[in-house]
Amino acid sequence: MIDAPVPVPAESTLLVRVGACGVCGSDLHIVDWELGAERMVARLPVILGHEPAGEVVEVGARVTNFKVGDRVALDPFGHCGRCGPCRAGRFHLCSSPTTLSGAFAEFTVAPVGNAHLVPATMNIEQAALLEPFGTGLHAVEQS
């Protein structure tokens, strides 16, 4: 277990109280220290987890599209919103994608490009499964 302070959101990020977080295969590879784990972890100790959902508890100074109390699902990879592909609405081709980590904790900080609003009718565990579900759905559609 790692004791870590509550992170402080930067001007374009959200502080999210994590309600649920999926366990990704890459998390397991890091725990077992196999298949290139040393390339996935910049330094140790590290808080893993990048498939969470939760509630926004603080917003950065430049955040306008989220507010405290919003429920969000967080994508491991987001978009910068400034490059040519982003301005054209092609976020999947972002030249400077944002990343997320550290969600196996009570709180995590997420760039706004990684956050998606979740309806009140969806439970938080389902919301945490949206990204892995989307990955599987995309694979089926491509096949």
Rank of each mutant, 00 (worst) to 15 (best):
R82D: 10
C86I: 04
G113L: 01
F107G: 05
T98V: 00
G89F: 09
P111M: 01
P97A: 07
P111Q: 03
R87T: 11
G84N: 07
A105L: 11
G81M: 08
F91I: 02
A105R: 02
A110R: 01
T99K: 05
T108W: 05
G84P: 00
C86L: 12
C83S: 15
G113S: 02
A88N: 12
A103T: 09
F104L: 12
T99G: 04
S96V: 01
T108R: 12
F104P: 03
R90M: 02
G102D: 05
S101T: 12
V109G: 07
P111Y: 09
A88L: 13
F107I: 06
F107A: 06
S101A: 13
E106M: 04
P111W: 04
S96F: 03
F104I: 07
V112M: 06
T98S: 14
A103K: 10
G84Y: 10
A110C: 09
T99S: 09
A105Y: 04
R82P: 02
T108F: 11
A110E: 07
S101H: 06
C83L: 12
F104R: 08
P111G: 07
T98M: 05
F107Q: 06
C80S: 13
P85K: 13
V112N: 00
G89Q: 07
C80N: 10
P111I: 07
F91G: 11
H92C: 06
R82W: 11
A103N: 05
C94P: 06
H92S: 12
A110T: 04
G102A: 09
T108P: 09
T108A: 15
G102L: 09
C94D: 01
P111S: 08
C94M: 07
G84S: 07
R87K: 13
